[in-house]
């Protein structure tokens, strides 16, 4: 009996509290940058696609909703010929971002993706690719990797020596 009265009293007190209702969609909530929402593909500082089509995100995805195909551009640069995410399956776990060695795939604080038709939840590369660097700035995979795929020459990357001269005889 007492506890019921106590509950009613507490509920009554809420009448005088400041209201917590957010007038969404007029008022947008604050979402931290690390919020895991809609997935984007980013570009590097030279505005080139960051994704090198390594398939790691697809492999990491627990619901297998990422499919892509690697292709070779000029100078052998790897990029995804197509890149598809089926958002009707995606659980926004962020594993793909975690797995990505190039910071290409990123989850951003946007969750407004509702659709009437489930088919519209299938995003292709043109829907995913943004023009900026996203959350992580200043990283270009090709400058750190040993390969020469047209971005930098052999030995010009981060912490690399000039290519070995095979003819030299010095010990």
């Amino acid at each position: 009996m007492i506890s019921i009265l106590r509950s009613m009293w507490l509920t009554f007190l809420h009448v005088f509290h400041k209201t917590e209702t957010v007038e969404y969609p007029e008022v947008k909530p604050y979402l931290a940058p690390r919020y895991r929402g809609r997935i984007v593909l980013t570009r590097d500082e030279e505005k080139n696609e960051r994704c090198v089509a390594c398939y790691l995100c697809a492999a990491a995805c627990p619901v297998d909703c990422i499919a892509l195909q690697a292709a070779e551009g000029e100078n052998g640069r790897r990029y995804p010929e197509f890149f598809r995410i089926n958002f009707s399956r995606c659980i926004f776990c962020g594993f793909c971002e975690e797995a990505c060695p190039t910071y290409a795939i990123q989850l951003i604080p946007d969750f407004e993706m509702a659709e009437y038709d489930r088919q519209n939840m299938v995003y292709e590369k043109q829907h995913l690719l943004i023009s900026g660097e996203g959350k992580y700035h200043g990283y270009n995979f090709y400058k750190n990797a040993g390969v020469d795929m047209g971005v930098k020459g052999k030995g010009e990357g981060h912490n690399e020596e000039k290519p070995v001269d095979l003819k030299e005889l010095l010990p």
Binding site: A58, I66, R89, R118
Partner: peptide, 16 residues
């Protein structure tokens, strides 16, 4: 066991 993309490969044709 790590075959990927099962739910996306044909999603462009039909999401089911």
């Amino acid at each position: 066991i790590r075959y990927s993309g099962r739910t996306a490969i044909n999603a462009n044709i039909s999401v089911s």
